[in-house]
Design a protein around this nucleic acid. Structure first.
Lengths: 192, 192
DNA sequence: ATTTTATATTGACCGCGGTCAATTATTGAG
DNA sequence: CTCAATAATTGACCGCGGTCAATATAAAAT
């Protein structure tokens, strides 16, 4: 029979996560080195990989947590009454997802809307986004010929498309907002 | 004044590309190792990086070439008269883009590349896709309230969304086709 | 032909993610 | 408490992408 998790294990893991967050606050996600994390946490390199299958898994955890926090806050707002309001409510999330090129890459890779069989924190968050969006989009001023789940998936697809353009040198956040608005107007409010 | 490119340079580059294609045909894109490519090409490792900024650049080149070839063939067909036909004509491209998870990752990473000056083959191909799609979608049986360029961008966004789901363990190609059809019906033919 | 300059190639070396056999700590059973 | 079983930790080591000062080769200048 399986033994209980040792207290030590939880402490080590917590120290690793704390150290990682500290490192990220100093050098960004892209600048994080596992070597430096374990040094700060006061453990050996192997210990890191006993707690996380790979570096990506740590990133998944940390980014997923950030995204969940943002979603929690956004979730409380009243349903949007226009695509502009919808885009506004999405912006905090999109801003984080595009804060670094590396962040966007990792998120895409783990979105499950992008490419993983096992469901991690980021994939879970993408699922939450769909649920939340679907909820907010029902009974709004938007098209009602298709179900709100499909509507939500479309919003996500267009959001990804719009974010990808942020990393084309010439675009900035204003473009992101404007472009997404154009997409969502066409997607959510076709002429009836 | 700039000197002409040496014949030797072109030969070396050609040998590297040929070797890479051979390796890929044996072990797939994901299995390619630079070490093995240079060994086959009969050059030193450093030579590879004198010809390509990094491994990704080689992948960009090879995958972009494949995608261009596929697009060339698909481009000749008559314009689709339904979303089903449109999806059919997209399938060869989507099939290649999802042939390996690694391939899809690389393509996503390069699809909206960095600076205009350093736009690569894959990014170019994504541009071609938009142009070709926009062309085929004009004067078709699809919605005409928005311009065909926007229409095409939406198709691309939904195609990416649909492809991403291929890598969630439970989905297969049938799902890709079916899912994309649902998306594009909603996008291209909203009830008027 | 010889020197000078630009370009191509080389391979030892580095950084960093990830592995694993050996070691140490924890726990439950007698 | 002792001891065997299990779990956690360690750090030397590996694979592989990428760098760079040294070297070799080609092309232009004399």
């Amino acid at each position: 029979m399986a033994r209980a998790v040792q207290k030590r294990t939880l402490e080590t893991r917590a120290r690793l996560v704390a150290a990682a967050e500290k490192v990220i606050s100093e050098v960004g996600y892209d600048g994080l080195r596992v070597e430096q994390v374990v040094q700060r946490a006061g453990v050996a390199k192997g210990t890191f990989f006993a707690h996380f299958p790979d570096k990506d898994a740590l990133m998944d955890l940390l980014m997923g947590a950030r995204m969940d926090a943002i979603l929690d806050e956004v979730g409380h707002r009243p349903p949007p009454r226009s695509t502009a309001e919808l885009v506004d409510s999405l912006m905090p999330l999109l801003r984080f997802m595009t804060c670094e090129r590396y962040v966007f890459d990792v998120i895409l890779r783990h979105s499950g809307a992008a490419a993983r069989s096992e469901i991690g924190p980021i994939a879970m968050n993408f699922g939450r986004q769909i649920d939340l969006l679907a909820d907010k989009l029902t009974n709004g001023p938007f098209r009602s010929d298709i179900d709100s789940g499909l509507l939500a998936e479309g919003v996500q697809a267009f959001a990804v498309q719009a974010m990808a353009l942020v990393f084309c040198a010439l675009h900035n956040e204003t473009d992101l907002r404007a472009r997404l608005t154009v997409y969502l107007d066409a997607w959510l409010m076709p002429p009836r």
